[in-house]
């Protein structure tokens, strides 16, 4: 057992402070310590992306990062992207276009997609598939995930234009 560390994270805008062993992976901090259970664990080899969160503007697999490494950083999970009464356009689009079935990959998918659309607001289908390649889905066959992201992109671009 190694010495516990004092760790401060800002998760979905809220500051969290706690003591943890250095070996605590961020996904466990989120799920078990902070009860933020949207991000999931689908593998132990860093492939599936179900644990994807945004850390200081980067999409990161939170199973492959110690919370100690994230000390002082800002983290956004699916819970911080939108809520039941305030859906993000991606959340509405996944619902509308049937971009999920079991829902296990969805938090990671949407968190990653939000970052993808920030970097590339008008992605082609090929760019979406490539940009989402770190996220595996067992249910949808991806087709409707692509449609959902395209629809959300259109919606977000229209809203942006209307605001200008």
């Amino acid at each position: 057992m190694s010495k516990k560390m004092h760790i401060t994270l800002t998760v979905n805008g809220k500051e969290e402070e706690f003591l943890a062993e250095p070996r605590e992976l961020l996904i466990y901090t989120l799920r078990e310590r902070l009860n933020i259970t949207g991000p999931h664990i689908g593998c132990d080899t860093s492939h599936c992306g179900a644990c994807t969160v945004t850390i200081n503007g980067k999409s990161v697999k939170s199973c492959t990062l110690f919370s100690a490494q994230a000390n002082g950083k800002e983290i956004t999970t699916i819970e911080g992207i939108g809520g039941p009464d305030d859906l993000h356009p991606l959340q509405s689009a996944f619902k509308e276009h049937h971009g999920l079935q079991c829902g296990f990959c969805t938090p990671g998918m949407i968190t990653r997609a939000a970052k993808l659309l920030q970097e590339n607001p008008n992605p082609t289908e090929a760019e979406i598939r490539f940009g989402m390649a770190g996220n595996i889905c067992r249910c949808t066959g991806y087709q409707n995930i692509i449609k959902s992201i395209q629809a959300a992109a259109a919606e977000m671009n229209a809203a942006k234009e209307a605001a200008e």
């Binding site: 999409s59 697999k61 940009g131």
Partner: peptide, 9 residues
Amino acid sequence: IADPQVRYM
């Protein structure tokens, strides 16, 4: 190499 998340890190 890898995928977007891995390439960020």
